[in-house]
């Protein structure tokens, strides 16, 4: 069923990772991703993997949930793997057929690339699984605060993001309902050619768009009724504050990047 999609869904909990300041998590995530691209060798990748595995462990997020979220991305993974496998020409040749060459370097690169993408996705999932959308946008708004000085409407952007995230489950539920209603009128979404199936989407998409616009309109009115006027002079109910655990997280993140750079300088 549609509502089983978990991509970017928040898993409420009270682990040390959940309790971290959203800004900390965002910054450490960026640090981790940068390290991931600096990592070149098996050893560096191993370090990155251990770090990630340990973080997942203390976050108490079930591994199953993370794996389930990966499903839609399997195609991208396979595509990357295949591309790297066949288009690397360096290194000793392992197999050769139909003009295609698989080299040892190709295999190595394909595996590393797939591992990199997997870790990239997992660490991003970990952020959205352990941080509520509201906390996430609050964190982003706070981090992008300096951009206000050059006229970027930071508050408005984060509000837009917040609303978009909040409406994803609502729209999924709505889609489910409309699909059932059209199925009750004999609509068939599973059979037929590609064109027929694409056409079968019209009875879902039109009502979905209509209702999305209706909701947007209602929400805008409701916000205006409560005198919403953007970020000017607006105070927060939950003030973001760094704690000792945030400092620890920064420390660990810093150590990680230093370690990876050091390993890289030794050619590892």
């Amino acid at each position: 069923m549609l509502r089983d999609i978990t991509l970017g869904q928040y898993f409420p909990g009270n682990s040390p990772i959940h309790r971290l300041d959203p800004r900390t998590k965002l910054i450490v995530l960026v640090v981790y991703i940068v390290s991931l691209f600096l990592a070149q060798s098996w050893i560096s990748y191993g370090v990155m993997f251990l770090f990630l595995a340990y973080t997942i462990r203390i976050s108490t997020i079930p591994l199953k949930a993370i794996l389930k979220g990966m499903k839609p991305l399997v195609m991208i993974l396979i595509f990357t793997g295949v591309l790297n496998l066949f288009f690397t020409r360096e290194g000793p040749v392992l197999v050769e057929f139909w003009g295609l060459v698989i080299t040892l370097d190709g295999v190595k690169r394909a595996v590393l690339m797939m591992a990199r993408i997997l870790m990239l996705i997992t660490c991003t999932f970990l952020l959205t699984y352990t941080t509520s959308p509201i906390a996430l946008t609050d964190g982003l708004e706070s981090l992008m605060g300096p951009l206000k000085k050059i006229g970027v409407p930071v508050h408005e952007l984060s509000m837009m993001m917040c609303i978009a995230l909040r409406f994803i489950p609502t729209l999924i539920e709505e889609t489910d309902k409309i699909m059932s209603a059209q199925k009750a009128r004999g609509a068939d979404f599973e059979n037929g050619s590609l064109v027929e199936r694409a056409r079968a989407l019209i009875p879902i998409l039109v009502p979905l768009f209509v209702s999305a616009f209706r909701r947007a309109d209602e929400l805008a009115t409701a916000m205006e009724c409560r005198c919403y006027q953007g970020g000017q002079g607006r105070t927060k109910m939950k003030l973001l504050r760094y704690h000792r655990s945030d400092m620890t997280a920064f420390g660990v993140g810093g150590c990680l990047v230093v370690l990876i750079v050091l390993l890289g300088s030794f050619g590892l």
């Binding site: 309902k177 209603a181 009502p207 209509v210």
Partner: peptide
């Protein structure tokens, strides 16, 4: 269904009512 008016999608009332029989 409940609030069935949210499932309407065709350009005219006629075509919307005809959706079920057509299927």
């Amino acid at each position: 269904f409940q609030y069935p008016e949210y499932q309407l999608f065709e350009e005219t009332v006629y075509r919307d009512i005809a959706f079920g029989p057509k299927n």
